[in-house]
Design a protein around this nucleic acid. Sequence first.
DNA 1: TTAAATAGGTGGACTGGTCAACAATTTGAA
DNA 2: TTCAAATTGTTGACCAGTCCACCTATTTAA
Lengths: 164, 164
Amino acid sequence: MQPQGATPVRQAALVHGPMADELGFHLRRAQIAAFRHFAHAISAAEGITPGLYGMLQAIANNPGLSQSALAVAMDVDRSSIVKVVDQLEEKGLIVRDASPTDRRRYRLHMTVTGTQVLDRIEDAVMRQDRAFSARLDEAERATLIDFLKRLYQPDSEPPTLARE
Amino acid sequence: MQPQGATPVRQAALVHGPMADELGFHLRRAQIAAFRHFAHAISAAEGITPGLYGMLQAIANNPGLSQSALAVAMDVDRSSIVKVVDQLEEKGLIVRDASPTDRRRYRLHMTVTGTQVLDRIEDAVMRQDRAFSARLDEAERATLIDFLKRLYQPDSEPPTLARE
DNA sequence: TTAAATAGGTGGACTGGTCAACAATTTGAA
DNA sequence: TTCAAATTGTTGACCAGTCCACCTATTTAA
């Protein structure tokens, strides 16, 4: 799992050329750094990845949602959800609860231990997240989050963007 | 290709809970959005991913660097580099040039067509990147990049690098 | 001179995502 | 009412990207 950065060798920094001005480049690097930070602080101890953690939060905050809804929320294929839900269920954190009104569907929700575990992890994650952004003050952090949201939120946007 | 997010169904947005204040969460989403945007605009047409593009820029801007140095720069395992360099070489974009002073080592550099292709792609990438960040003005964009750098850059500061 | 370190490479494994197909079930249009 | 279409969860094949352990050739340094 651990992406485990490169060798400890101190290397002369490379020239980046035009990428130095590309937002996507910095975004990617920051995300990789964040992932590693999370892996270090959380995954190692709890055996949970950022992705799993996100799923868990989604289920905890939206009890009873279906796997399809979860897939939409996580923006992945329905089939990808199956494995993840399997994992979380094996760990005893969530359960697939048969929907009484639609026999095709499961309602996902947390188990008691799942809730406990999430509470604990959540704490660690919050601390980890703060540590990761330690070089930003509160205002900067908030601004950064706002900017990021604007990048990915579909909202008010080029309306005539023919989607098919 | 179409990662095409969600079904066209308008879904009630999920509650995010404490993740709404987690930087890592927004970072991940923004990065995924950026990747998809790139895939749409560039990969489909040029058959090149953000990762490959980054490698290409690294080589173009640091001609003669070794595969190991590239691995360090890209922060991946040496063995991962092999396949990537294979791909770029197969596409005729770069060459492995045997080092005359160290027979273990290759010096990577662009071919003529590689340079041409990169120039073309670079243009598209710059436009794509601007389009992606269209909801930020110039100042905001610059601020965002600065914040991101602060997140991923190792200890305070680049020593004495006069390049750039 | 020889042990250790380094460069590039191979093969196996794992992760996380895609897509296509499928059965059971629900929905909706005729 | 009925039956075709859509939806839900699932499986299986596949792909890309990464890691690791190990290998050979070569260079470095003790």
